[in-house]
Nucleic acid binder design. Structure first.
Lengths: 187, 187
DNA sequence: CTGTCCATGTAAGGCGTTACATGATTGT
DNA sequence: ACAATCATGTAACGCCTTACATGGACAG
């Protein structure tokens, strides 16, 4: 349940509405923690009940009220606690690996097509990440935020590295299946 | 919803009970698709209703009946279709990256402790994977199954590579935070 | 005048987890 | 004698997704 903590993380910078939060997610952590709008609203309500947030209703004539959420002391404590607590061992589910694992039931052609498709998708993802990385670097890292900026770049770099590795792994698999030589890598 | 397809994959080798399936998962794909027992039983019932499986009840005096599930023609068709269909772009949730992203709100000491802990957990995981990889290789790859064996080794190697990359990434982050020099990697 | 943005939510359903329940058999 | 294994499930709850609903403001 990191959604809650990511929300706390954002609100610890400044108070935001649900709508603003959705944008904040999409602009920064979408790649490793997508959040959808209905879930954000529901979670905000829940967190307010739990006392982690305070809600301020801004009434506007003729338009829907806007609700600004502010982190409470309890929220700040909870955020700090979570940020400093190591995560439990978690298992990422990788459907691609299931396809590969049972790929023995496919023909070479079918298997190759699947892997080639995945390799292409990975290359496209890499291109996007590389572009984001480049433009983010270009956009003035103001020196007083150097540390926070560095950490956000780190998350991007993780995305780059892991996709590079996936691509290498796919290319290696493709080569071996094409050649029909099944020699496992030694580590 | 790959659980369904993983079950089909196993049952395409031979009919199994829910209990057997649980063991099959634990012995092979646990690392990229953990399945828990209650979910398996529920999914089996559901798949039988959908006509993907056939259920054979083996009555045993004095003991609980055993139920053996067999893949149907519809199930085989569904499996083949799924195996040959590229997966939709999926986003893996990485709570660790959320911790890092909001790590600017921690002291150096707190951040370092968190990352060191994760690095150690990753090293332990690598040690386990390396051992499994080695013993699996040693255990007689019968030549007629070379292709299927190769594919199962591939999934293991993916686990190894991705954990190696995670470890490198963590060590790089640790170094830079320790040194206080925040120079993003260039790609 | 059509569509996108701003801004809020509700409803229904799927996937997964944890905990609980039962009861014989086999191993130490 | 006690624990682990075999073998089946049910119940309840949590997280997330998709689809639906509302309605003003503003840009092309």
């Amino acid at each position: 349940m990191s959604l809650k903590h990511a929300i706390l993380g954002f609100l610890n910078f400044k108070p935001l509405s649900g709508y603003d939060l959705k944008k904040a997610f999409d602009n920064s952590v979408r790649h490793f923690w997508p959040a959808n709008q209905s879930q954000i609203y529901r979670t905000l309500a829940q967190m307010t009940e739990e006392g982690l947030l305070e809600k301020e209703v801004i009434e506007r004539e003729e338009r829907l009220d806007m609700k600004i959420y502010r982190i409470s002391d309890a929220g700040r404590a909870e955020l700090h606690h979570w940020l400093t607590t190591p995560l439990p061992e978690q298992d990422n589910r990788e459907p691609l690996l299931i396809q590969v694992f049972f790929g023995g039931q496919l023909s070479d052609e079918e298997l190759l097509a699947l892997l080639r498709h995945e390799a292409q998708a990975t290359e496209e993802r890499l291109a996007v990440y590389t572009m984001i990385h480049r433009t983010t670097l270009a956009n003035a890292p103001s020196p007083e935020n150097a540390r926070a900026f560095f950490l956000s770049m780190l998350t991007l770099e993780y995305g780059l590295r892991s996709n590079q590795v996936l691509l290498e792994w796919l290319n290696n698999a493709l080569q071996q299946i094409e050649a029909g030589t099944f020699t496992p890598t030694t580590f």
